[in-house]
Amino acid sequence: MDRAENDIKKRLNRVFRETFGDEKLEVFETMTAVDIDAWDSLMHVVLVVAIEKEFGITLNAAEVGKLENVGMMLTTIKKHTRK
């Protein structure tokens, strides 16, 4: 994992902690809604809005719906921040 990727993961981890109000939360690539109790369809959108704000990006409807796990989030963020 290079430095840029590491940085994205750290920032994403911070977004997760703030959104779900859990300071001990550590994200991993295969993490899904099953791993976090409060991650339901509503909190998913709250999370997306927080990600958009943190990284200064805008995700389209298909991307928002398809962000099923942290790995997909990292890939999508990388794709947008590279532009």
Binding site: S41, L42, V45, V46, V48, V49, A61, A62, V64, G65
Partner: peptide, 26 residues
């Protein structure tokens, strides 16, 4: 979920992001 629910909730959150309001947006 993709094309109606998420966009509505997203628009409402972007308008006013307050934790207590999220269930009502739902």
């Amino acid at each position: 979920k993709f094309y109606v629910f998420n966009p509505i909730v997203k628009a409402l959150i972007q308008r006013r992001n307050k934790a207590g309001l999220i269930p009502y947006y739902g």
